[in-house]
Design a protein around this nucleic acid. Structure first.
Lengths: 100, 100
DNA sequence: CGTGTAAGGAATTCTGACACG
DNA sequence: CGTGTAAGGAATTCTGACACG
């Protein structure tokens, strides 16, 4: 796991990095778009990946997309990727069998 | 500037990452071995580079080195590097003049 | 729906000092 | 010298709610 995945950034720093209000950042979590970790005391900790993600989300929101649409678009993108991977694997297996 | 240089990690998170007590971390700053930034409110913010640096410092301390020795060793290493660069530049210049 | 804000409380961090060795 | 700790205070963050639209 790289530095980009370490959950170590407090919400205040995330707000500085992204330019988003802490209210927005917490709201996007409520809508299941980001998943910070928590300290024992309950304060949120984000990774640089989360920061990048939040900036993408902010862009989409600005474009008028709603939070549930963002989630849905991701779901579909994921599904598409899975299908693609399945196909690739199928092709590879077929090619491999041909060689025997 | 990469993620490793962004000063975004609070002292508590640094303590978790390094295993050092916050007392130690603050002390190494007092001895001019690390240089966190501060928020407007005065809370320290470290980078991943600072975290790596602190772990190296901790190793040297464990080996019995004192803080001022660590600083001195660094000063010397820096100087040595400068001299080396000077020499390299000199060689390159000489070689370049030969070609004319 | 997305976001601001005031409210009250809890977690986090800060500094300067004393202690020990 | 390097580090722990108790002390008092300030900065940061948390949640749930009301507001507006």
């Amino acid at each position: 796991m790289s530095y980009k995945d370490k959950k170590v950034i407090s919400i205040g720093a995330v707000s500085e990095l992204t330019g988003l209000s802490v209210r927005k950042i917490r709201y996007y979590e409520e809508r299941k778009l980001v998943f910070p970790e928590r300290t024992d005391g309950g304060t949120r900790k984000y990774s640089f990946n989360d920061v990048e993600r939040l900036m993408e989300i902010a862009n989409k929101i600005e474009d008028g997309m709603q939070t549930f649409e963002i989630k849905e678009a991701e779901r579909k993108a994921l599904k598409k990727e899975k299908v693609r991977n399945q196909m690739l694997r199928g092709q590879l297996n077929a090619a491999f069998r041909m060689r025997k």
